[in-house]
Design a protein around this nucleic acid. Sequence first.
DNA 1: AAGATTCCGGACAGAGGGTGCATTATCATA
DNA 2: TATGATAATGCACCCTCTGTCCGGAATCTT
Lengths: 215, 215
Amino acid sequence: MPREIDRRAARTRKALHHALLTLMLQKGYEALSVQDIIDEADVGRSTFYAHYTGKEDLLRSGFQMLREELREAQSTAREKAGVPHDDPLGFSATMFEHAARYADHYRTMIGGRGGAVTENEIRLILSEVVRQELSSTLQDDAIPRDFVVQFIVGAFLTALNWWFERKPGLPPSTVDAMFKSLVLDGLSSFSGGRRSGDHPTTNRGAHRSNLKDRG
Amino acid sequence: MPREIDRRAARTRKALHHALLTLMLQKGYEALSVQDIIDEADVGRSTFYAHYTGKEDLLRSGFQMLREELREAQSTAREKAGVPHDDPLGFSATMFEHAARYADHYRTMIGGRGGAVTENEIRLILSEVVRQELSSTLQDDAIPRDFVVQFIVGAFLTALNWWFERKPGLPPSTVDAMFKSLVLDGLSSFSGGRRSGDHPTTNRGAHRSNLKDRG
DNA sequence: AAGATTCCGGACAGAGGGTGCATTATCATA
DNA sequence: TATGATAATGCACCCTCTGTCCGGAATCTT
C-alpha cells in the first residue's frame, strides 16, 4: 500500500507553496486571493481545497516546514557554540545572518505585508527558541518568564524590521550588536551619562567583539 | 455658507464609528465586512462609500481623532509632571492607566484581532509620542534614534499585550514597573547575579517607588 | 494489463465589494 | 415662511471571490 505521499499531490503542494511565496513577494499576503494562487500555480480550484482549507492553511503549512528547519538549525548551532548556557541571546546572531541571506522573504513576512497570521506564526516560532535559550540562563523571577520571552521576541522583530526598512545595507553583525545592547543593557547604556560598562557577573559587555569572531 | 460639517454627515459618521467599534469588540476587525458595519449603523451602502473609501479608511479616520486626543493628553500630562526632561519613558504610566480604563478597546486593538492596519496605526501614534519624549533625554547616537524609538514602542506593546492576555488582574503600576525595568536596564538587572541597582547619573532605579506616589 | 483509488478541473450557487442614479432632507436667502 | 440650491441617502446593478460538486483522467496495486 502507498505509504508515501502521491507524487501528484506532492507536485501540487509544491506548486502551491511556490506560488504563494512568489505572489507574497509581489503583492503581500492580505491582498492575495485564492484565485491568484491557483492561477499562478496552474492548479484547479477544487484541487486547492482538497489540500488546504484556505490560503491561511496553506500559509501555516509552509511555516510548519520552516519551524522544523529552524529547530534543527538552532540545535546544530547550539552544539557548535561553546557557551550556550551563559548567553540568553545566542539565537540572534544566527537569525540575523539567516535573515540577511533570505532578505526578500523576511522582508515580506515581517514588514506588515505578511499579515497578522504570518507575524503571529513567526512570534510563536521565535518564542519557542527564546524560551529554550532563556531556560538555562535566567533564575530571577522578578518578572514573569513569559513576559521576558515576549519582550525579547518583540525586540528582535523590531530590530529586523528596522533593519530592512531603514538601513538595509548594514551588516548583520552590526544590527545584532545594537539589538543585544538594547536588550541586555536597555537604555541605561547610553542615556545621558554613560557608565563604564563592565559587569563581573555576566559577560554582556563582550558581545560586540564576539560578533567579529563569528562573522 | 456652511463652514461646519453638515449635521447629517456628522450623525452618519458618528454612527459608523460607533458601529465599527462595537463590532470590533465582538468579531474583530478582519472578520468584519462593510455590510456588517452599515447594517449595525443602519446606513445605506453608498452613504458609507460617500464618506469613506472602505472599512480601512473608516478605521484610520477613527485613529485620527484618537491621535489628536492623545497628543493633547500627553502635553497636559507633561505640564503636570515636574521632571519631563529626565525620564525617557514618562508616557508609559499614563498610557497603562488609560489602557486599564479602556481595557476592552485596547485588547481588541492590540491583541491581533485588530488587524495589521490597527497595529500599524497604533505604532505610528506611539512612535510620535516616544520620539518626542526621547528628543530631550538621549544624546548618544551610538544606536540610531529611530531604532530606539521602535524598540521602546515594541516593548510597550509587548507589555500591554502580555498584560491583557496573561495577567489581566495586575494593576497598571506593576506592569509599568516591569516595562520600565526591562527597557531601562534590560536583562542585566536580573540575569543570574543582580547588582544593587543604584545609578548616580540617572534616576532610573526609582521608578518602582515613583509609581506608588502617583497611584 | 486491469480494477480500484485518488487527484484534477470546469461548472455552479452564494456573498460581499464598489458605483450610478433618482429621491429626499437640509441649508441659505428673500 | 417659502423657495431654490446643495448635499446626503438608499436602492439597484455588475463584478470578483469563495467554497462545493461531479465527471474525467492519472496513478498505484495485483
